[in-house]
Each structure stands twice: as C-alpha cells, then as structure tokens.
Amino acid sequence: MLEMFPILLPYVPMVLGMSVIATGLAIILGLILGVITKNRVPILYHVSLVFISYFRGTPSLVQIFIFYFGLPQLFPQLLFINGFTAVIIALSLRNAAYLSEVFRSSLTAVEKGQLEAALSVGMSKGQALKRIVLPQAIRTAVPPTGNFFIMIIKETSLAFTIGVTDMFAQAKLSAASSYNFFESYVAVALIYWALTALFSFLQSLYERRIDKPYERGVSI
C-alpha cells in the first residue's frame, strides 16, 4: 500500500483542478439561478425550476455519460468535449442546481428591512446588495458551499468511467497488474480522506474568521 502513494499522488493536482473549476462554475451559475428563483423572474423562473429539477433528479454518472457520449452524437460541433471537460460540465451543472437553493435561502434569510433601510439612507440597490445583503448571505452560504466542494472532490472519481486517467483510474490499473486490489483502493481512500479532512479544517477556520465580527457584537 505504501508503494502506491508515490504512484497516486501525482494525480492529486488533476483531482483538485477538476474540483476547483467545477465548484467555481457551480457557484456562479448557482448564484444566478438563486437570484432568478428568489425574485421569480418571468419565464426564466420556470426554466430554472426545470433545470434544477432535472439535475437534482438524475445520477451524476448518467449526466457525465450524456455530456461525453450523448451530446457530441447529436451535435457534431461538440466533439471537442473530452472526458476532462465532460466531467467538469456535468459536476458544475449538477451542483449549481443544489447551490441555487443554498443561495436562494441565504438571500431570503437576510431581513428585507435591512435593504429598505439602506435604500432609505441614499444607497443604490447595488450598493445595498454589495455592502449589506451579500456579506450576510455569504456568511450563511459558506458552510453548505464548502460541503459541496468536498462532495465534488469525491465525485471526480467518476471520471475514470469515461477514460480519464485520474487517481482512481491509476489505482485500478496498478491493481490489475499487481493483483493488490485491497492495498490500491485503500491507498486511494486514504488520499481522498486526507484531502477532505484538510479542506474541512480550512473551511472551519474560514467560518470562525467570518463569524468573529458577529461574536464581538454579541459580547458587547
């Protein structure tokens, strides 16, 4: 098992790269969907509901297969989509559907009176959102968003199903040649465990940091 770590660790940057890109896209799209659903924007609201329902109601593996095998078959101009890209697209869209509800509820949790008070003292709506609403909404959204990032790290292991040679695929290849299946898969599990534990720790540090102003306010 110890001999597997030098073989698997070089693939960690690929795992983190897919996770960071997918999470970044999911946050952007999820925020857009959250604003649309919160404000019930005409037409876009119903389109968003269908989008959210579909990506929350179908398995990640099916979505990856659709983007990698299905869409290029229907639209030849999408043949440029490789396995790496298909995984990122599928994971970002799937998690955007979940994050949209996180952002919608976070925005809703901020009392309307605070926005009205900001407007009454001369702030524009954009300024009020930037200075008053969003900082409080972000504080509420950080814990679940961090959890989704950790979930995406683990879901990148599905990339091997469409031929991406990631950490899990390399472990499978090494196990097939050495017949050390238990050792190979335990090594993969330990690396994923270490990554999720590290980011969980960093998330907890960030949560404590953004909570400090509120804790000082309570103590006063």
Results as ranks from 00 to 15, higher is better:
residue 219 S to D: 13
residue 119 L to P: 05
residue 160 F to T: 01
residue 59 P to F: 02
residue 162 I to E: 00
residue 85 T to C: 08
residue 112 K to N: 14
residue 17 G to Y: 08
residue 46 H to S: 14
residue 152 I to D: 03
residue 204 S to P: 02
residue 209 R to H: 06
residue 111 E to T: 11
residue 7 I to Q: 13
residue 70 G to Q: 04
residue 172 K to G: 09
residue 36 I to G: 01
residue 138 I to F: 13
residue 101 E to F: 06
residue 129 L to S: 13
residue 90 A to Q: 02
residue 220 I to T: 14
residue 15 V to M: 15
residue 191 I to S: 01
residue 78 L to A: 00
residue 168 F to Y: 10
residue 196 T to R: 01
residue 44 L to T: 03
residue 113 G to R: 08
residue 76 P to E: 07
residue 109 A to M: 09
residue 64 I to E: 00
residue 88 I to L: 06
residue 174 S to E: 11
residue 40 R to W: 15
residue 82 N to K: 00
residue 48 S to F: 02
residue 161 T to N: 15
residue 88 I to G: 00
residue 180 N to Y: 14
residue 172 K to R: 10
residue 149 F to R: 02
residue 116 E to C: 14
residue 166 D to C: 02
residue 211 D to F: 15
residue 48 S to H: 07
residue 150 I to W: 12
residue 216 R to P: 13
residue 20 V to P: 03
residue 94 R to P: 08
residue 190 L to M: 11
residue 180 N to S: 15
residue 130 K to M: 15
residue 209 R to T: 05
residue 203 Q to T: 08
residue 23 T to P: 04
residue 184 S to W: 05
residue 101 E to G: 05
residue 173 L to I: 05
residue 160 F to L: 04
residue 182 F to H: 12
residue 26 A to F: 01
residue 183 E to D: 15
residue 182 F to M: 09
residue 218 V to I: 14
residue 162 I to A: 02
residue 172 K to W: 12
residue 154 K to N: 11
residue 139 R to Y: 09
residue 57 G to D: 05
residue 68 Y to G: 02
residue 36 I to M: 10
residue 68 Y to W: 00
residue 62 V to T: 13
residue 186 V to Y: 07
residue 165 T to G: 11
residue 87 V to Y: 03
residue 66 I to T: 10
residue 122 G to Q: 00
residue 207 E to C: 06
residue 104 R to Q: 07
residue 108 T to N: 12
residue 177 S to K: 09
residue 123 M to F: 06
residue 125 K to V: 14
residue 39 N to A: 15
residue 34 G to K: 04
residue 202 L to V: 10
residue 5 F to E: 15
residue 171 A to E: 08
residue 73 Q to C: 09
residue 209 R to W: 09
residue 13 P to T: 11
residue 215 E to M: 13
residue 126 G to A: 12
residue 39 N to S: 14
residue 40 R to P: 04
residue 141 A to L: 03
residue 54 Y to G: 13
residue 114 Q to D: 14
residue 138 I to E: 04
residue 117 A to L: 10
residue 185 Y to T: 10
residue 87 V to Q: 07
residue 85 T to I: 10
residue 198 L to Y: 04
residue 104 R to C: 10
residue 175 A to W: 01
residue 69 F to W: 05
residue 82 N to M: 01
residue 181 F to S: 15
residue 153 I to T: 00
residue 96 A to S: 06
residue 86 A to I: 03
residue 153 I to N: 01
residue 110 V to Y: 09
residue 215 E to Y: 08
residue 169 A to S: 11
residue 92 S to R: 00
residue 99 L to D: 05
residue 60 S to L: 15
residue 29 L to K: 12
residue 202 L to P: 04
residue 166 D to N: 01
residue 73 Q to V: 13
residue 199 F to T: 00
residue 75 F to W: 07
residue 80 F to T: 12
residue 45 Y to T: 02
residue 29 L to C: 14
residue 111 E to P: 07
residue 115 L to W: 12
residue 97 A to I: 07
residue 142 V to W: 01
residue 6 P to K: 05
residue 127 Q to F: 04
residue 23 T to E: 07
residue 136 Q to D: 08
residue 200 S to N: 15
residue 62 V to P: 08
residue 138 I to M: 13
residue 41 V to L: 14
residue 116 E to V: 11
residue 44 L to V: 05
residue 37 T to D: 05
residue 7 I to H: 02
residue 55 F to P: 12
residue 103 F to W: 04
residue 13 P to K: 12
residue 43 I to M: 15
residue 213 P to I: 07
residue 26 A to C: 05
